[in-house]
Design a protein around this nucleic acid. Sequence first.
DNA 1: GTATCTGCAAAACATTTGCAATTCT
DNA 2: AGAATTGCAAATGTTTTGCAGATAC
Lengths: 142, 142
Amino acid sequence: MMKIVIDNVGEYLKSHNIKPSYQRIRIFEYLINTTSHPTVDEIYKVLISEIPTLSKTTVYNTLNLFVENEIAKLLTIEENEARYDANTGIHGHFKCDGCGEVMDFDFDFTKLGVSELDGFQVKQQDVFFRGMCKSCSGKTKN
Amino acid sequence: MMKIVIDNVGEYLKSHNIKPSYQRIRIFEYLINTTSHPTVDEIYKVLISEIPTLSKTTVYNTLNLFVENEIAKLLTIEENEARYDANTGIHGHFKCDGCGEVMDFDFDFTKLGVSELDGFQVKQQDVFFRGMCKSCSGKTKN
DNA sequence: GTATCTGCAAAACATTTGCAATTCT
DNA sequence: AGAATTGCAAATGTTTTGCAGATAC
């Protein structure tokens, strides 16, 4: 699905009222360059090797800042661990119980036919499915 | 939306391979008699006044048992706090940022038109929207 | 030079685990 | 009595907070 392309991360952060510190730029770059919807711990472990002074607190602070300023979305794919996505456009997530992969998919909410929500202002949509992807179907659990 | 009506909770638990202890019956009864999709803490605080010896561990154990035996669903409405729903049928949740209420709605996944998932076995569907409900729209935040 | 940002250590939560006491049949 | 359940206390893991030092403009 959609890959996010941002030519100048520093300017992008500025345009969203975030001062582009070195840590913030690196964390955001990691977010747009990975498709894995990483956890705080994953981001920290990858970046600590390149930024030896990085602390987990900064990763937490930075991701909270991104979410507040709406350049990242907090995903509730797994309970007990927050995952983040720099793709803030409307899309769903599917997690395969076979291979564990989380993939994005497009959906069109207007087609849902949800009459209960007539007249409601829907501002945020989280759609998360899980099951078996095509290549894992038929295989035994791996 | 749908209210769950179960005439004999003990028998219902038995039919799902759960021994109907007093605590389990009371916790399940609370779950089907409330529409608030309660947290562990809410359940505990309500029931401790009626079952003075109740422990939070038992509430956790019991809810995990319910989820394993598929008579309750774990909701990811709020990150950092698990919420539970005894309605295991497919439906979505809408949380109003105005009044804070969580309401159920029906949706028809087959109408989504998600071609990416063709050939996938979708076993679980979590659909969570948030925004402003009709009566809160137009009001200032309350 | 002053605001802000960073990062350590400690605190605050939610949840799980080990185990002894209790309960049920 | 024997097996399962309960509940306390401690452990675990994630996230937040307080604050001192570092950094940036």
